[in-house]
Amino acid sequence: MQHLKRKCLRASVRLRHSEIYRKSTMAVLALAVSAGEAMASSKGAAGFTKATQEVSSYQTPVSNLMKAIAAVIVLVGAFNVYFKMRASVMVA
């Protein structure tokens, strides 16, 4: 029994130090990493698609808000010009 155990231990040590073992270990690790990255990238693509759709849905309300802000700025500017012109006419 001891003889068989020693032979198995020697065989496992030889296997661990062999080039085939190293290459197969690296191949398994590369496969695991690439599978993980593939799963993560598919989730990321779905997230970007969803975010793009949500941002696109805000386009019209944001556009209307910007137009309203621009209208207020134009009115304030127009009143400033009007009051300055009126003040310069009264002084002269």
Rank of each mutant, 00 (worst) to 15 (best):
G44S: 12
S12L: 14
A46I: 05
A68L: 10
E19D: 13
V62F: 14
R86L: 06
F83I: 12
A71L: 09
G77W: 03
K7N: 09
R22I: 02
V81I: 14
S41T: 13
C8K: 14
A30N: 09
R22S: 12
R86N: 04
V62A: 15
A45I: 12
V81D: 01
A78H: 01
K84R: 09
I20G: 01
A38W: 10
S56V: 03
V55K: 09
A68V: 06
G36N: 02
A71Y: 03
M85H: 07
A27T: 08
F79P: 00
M90N: 05
R22Q: 11
E19I: 08
S57I: 03
K23P: 00
V33W: 05
I69H: 09
H3N: 03
S88K: 11
R16K: 11
V89Q: 10
S41V: 11
F83H: 08
E54A: 13
G47R: 08
I73P: 00
S18F: 01
V76W: 02
R10A: 07
A11Q: 07
L31E: 09
M26S: 14
R22C: 03
I69M: 14
L65K: 12
S41R: 15
T25N: 08
R6L: 12
L15S: 05
A40I: 04
N64S: 14
N64G: 04
P61Q: 11
M39D: 09
N80S: 10
A78W: 02
E37F: 12
A68G: 04
N64Q: 15
A51L: 14
Y82H: 02
A45V: 12
S63E: 10
G47F: 03
V72C: 09
V33R: 10
G47A: 07
I20A: 09
R86M: 03
A87S: 12
F79E: 05
S12Q: 13
S42R: 12
C8A: 14
K7R: 15
A40Y: 06
S18K: 01
S63V: 01
K84M: 08
N64P: 00
E19K: 12
I73N: 05
R10Y: 01
S18R: 00
S63R: 07
K43S: 08
M85V: 15
A40T: 05
L29W: 02
V76C: 04
M39K: 10
L4D: 12
F79G: 01
V74D: 15
A92H: 05
T25Y: 05
I20W: 01
S34G: 00
A32G: 01
V13P: 00
R16Q: 11
F79R: 03
Y58F: 14
K23Q: 11
A71P: 01
